[in-house]
Design a protein around this nucleic acid. Structure first.
Lengths: 251, 251
DNA sequence: CGCCAGGTTGACACTTTTCAAGCCGCGTGG
DNA sequence: CCACGCGGCTTGAAAAGTGTCAACCTGGCG
């Protein structure tokens, strides 16, 4: 076998594997797939999610008002979700990273409720909703998993309501950094140093604060020896101290 | 036929109807049921939700941490949902009235995420989750409807995030009153006068405000000729004016 | 009848926003 | 290569909004 043939064969093998067992091989599978599926079920699943889509930084995966027909699993990259009010005011309602699901807000009314904007070049798996419905009638593990995903989104939003409703500025920002840290850790990245993908303004919008307030909190955390910040790069120096920031209200 | 026999027969008829077609006859059906179900499907549904439960004012339908095994449809009454943080701080995350669904937050982690507390004597239909799963595999209209319910809860919470994140006190309270008004209207009650079921403090908790701030806003709305308030009774005098309160920020 | 939770109102304190100025880093075009 | 522009960020000072504390009122219920 010549080197050319070998290379071609390996290449073919890779492509087949990618098409036939993408979900099974995906390193995010435990984040977005139910556990305990049979091989046959995995095959069906791969068939379901076989449409990939690349989204350039700044572009929208979908926009509010567009017809809803699919949900999306983030394969790589980073998104913000943004709701705009009638009067033009808007708010960032969430940030999504690899293994997380986007678009479930659209099922209820048949159109998307928010914009999903890529904050860096990103990659998603498209999951057509009607096929997901069909398949989850056959694969009960998938049905349950999908319900769990939606339920967790409800619980996540309750957490944000708590953030917005009862925490003060510095607590919100500490909670936000710790949440990011924990999610990055779950994906195999360092929980102690990372790049923020969003601007201060986007962070502020999510946290119900002005960008200046976010900036001031960062400066204060730096002065208190909790973090180092350089533009979008953050290093957590004293994670326990950061955790105490939002237990601090108990004087 | 004697009068006694007639009465007995009517009574029997009523009982049967209540057992066999409770959902079909429920005046809230268009609020919590999918449209276009066949009679056979309605029968299955009635079988599913045949457990009623009465909750006295102040009692919990469920509490955070309890095993999740069912969702609930409110038949009559009024509930608040409340999340408590590790450190003891809590927040009201929603209010539920007839035809609305409670408990979907529990699916994700298998335990309830919040307390559901009756603010008046209430009545719910219990919908065991595993049976709902089974049935929604057979009745695709039910499956889709259930997904819509969860999705709408996600969208509702996004709306609350907007409230908490970008609106100022008076806007939040105006939006809250208008939301209540609209939901009562959809249930056949007067949209212009109603009794608040919650205290100022509970309203404040939901809106991320202190009870004094809520009270002051009520007084201001009264002085501005927008509403009349007497304790928990509210009459909306100038609904357009109220709507302009939260468009007001556009100076 | 008296108690007490719930509500209102005032004065003041504190947090966050607003407005303004200036800095930094990066990409673009001359 | 450098100058320039610009978005993004930081910092300060003053203003606005909301919270805190305290006093008092009210109505319902035991």
């Amino acid at each position: 076998m010549s080197r050319g043939e070998l290379a071609r064969q390996q290449s073919t093998h890779l492509v087949l594997a990618e098409l036939k067992a993408a979900c099974a091989n995906c390193n995010l599978r435990e984040l977005c797939l139910p556990a305990g599926l049979s091989n046959a079920e995995l095959d069906q699943l791969d068939n379901l999610v076989n449409v990939r889509r690349k989204i350039k930084r700044g572009d929208a995966l979908y926009r509010a008002g567009e017809i809803f027909d699919a949900i999306y699993a983030v394969r790589s990259g980073f998104f913000k979700s943004r709701v705009t009010y009638e009067d033009g005011r808007d708010q960032v309602t969430g940030f999504s990273m690899g293994g997380e699901i986007l678009g479930m807000d659209g099922i209820g009314q048949g159109t998307h409720n928010c914009d999903a904007i890529a904050l860096e070049d990103s990659d998603v798996c498209t999951i057509p909703y009607t096929r997901l419905e069909e398949l989850s009638r056959e694969v009960s593990g998938l049905q349950r998993h999908f319900h769990k995903m939606m339920s967790r989104e409800i619980v996540r939003e309750s957490g944000v309501m708590m953030l917005l409703g009862v925490m003060r500025a510095e607590e919100r920002i500490a909670a936000f950094l710790l949440n990011l840290s924990q999610r990055l850790n779950a994906r195999g990245y360092s929980p102690l140093e990372f790049h923020l993908r969003m601007t201060r303004e986007e962070m502020g919008s999510y946290l119900g604060l002005k960008l200046e307030t976010v900036s001031r909190a960062f400066s204060k955390f730096h002065n208190d020896g909790l973090i180092e910040v350089e533009q979008k790069f953050v290093r957590i120096i004293d994670i326990e101290g950061l955790k105490q920031v939002y237990a601090h209200h108990v004087n």
